[in-house]
């Protein structure tokens, strides 16, 4: 490829895309999902995961899960040494099927929320979170 200005920019941009791609789900993530769903198919639908696009520090990342009909929601951090984060079970007196917490992310990665709905089906939502490195050595 001849290096023209345009090509160089394209190259730079594609390198950025590759570098910015979230880490693919690991085997342990798949295992955790399978254990939760019992191998059932996971679709899309009644589950929302809210997480910052850029987290200022991976030690404390605020997230929220929300659904209309979930009985249980599992959160996984696919790029952590162990992906499990938390599982929320909603009881009879839960006014909504939503909850917020603060989590640890080992680096830039996908956070996944999988909900078991009242009808027994499973849905999932994914959020890519960029974890920044601090100014002076963290």
């Amino acid at each position: 490829m001849e290096l023209t200005r345009r090509n160089a920019i394209l190259l730079g941009a594609s390198a950025l895309l590759v570098a910015g791609l979230p880490i693919h789900a690991t085997a342990s993530t798949d295992d955790a999902i399978a254990a939760f769903t019992g191998g059932a198919e996971v679709g899309e639908g009644d589950i929302t995961l809210t997480a910052p696009e850029i987290a200022e520090n991976g030690n404390t990342v605020p997230i929220e899960v929300s659904s209309e009909t979930a009985v249980e929601i599992m959160v996984l951090a696919t790029g952590n040494p162990t992906p499990a984060v938390a599982t929320f079970k909603f009881g009879k007196l839960a006014a909504s099927r939503s909850a917020s917490t603060r989590i640890r992310l080992a680096g830039t990665q996908d956070v996944v929320a999988i909900a078991k709905l009242e009808d027994g089906s499973f849905v999932q939502a994914t959020s890519a979170v960029k974890v920044t490195i601090g100014g002076c050595g963290g």
Partner: peptide, 11 residues
């Protein structure tokens, strides 16, 4: 090197 420099600019 050139790509690197450009990448840095893009970043």
């Amino acid at each position: 090197i050139l790509t690197g420099a450009l990448l840095a600019t893009v970043l």
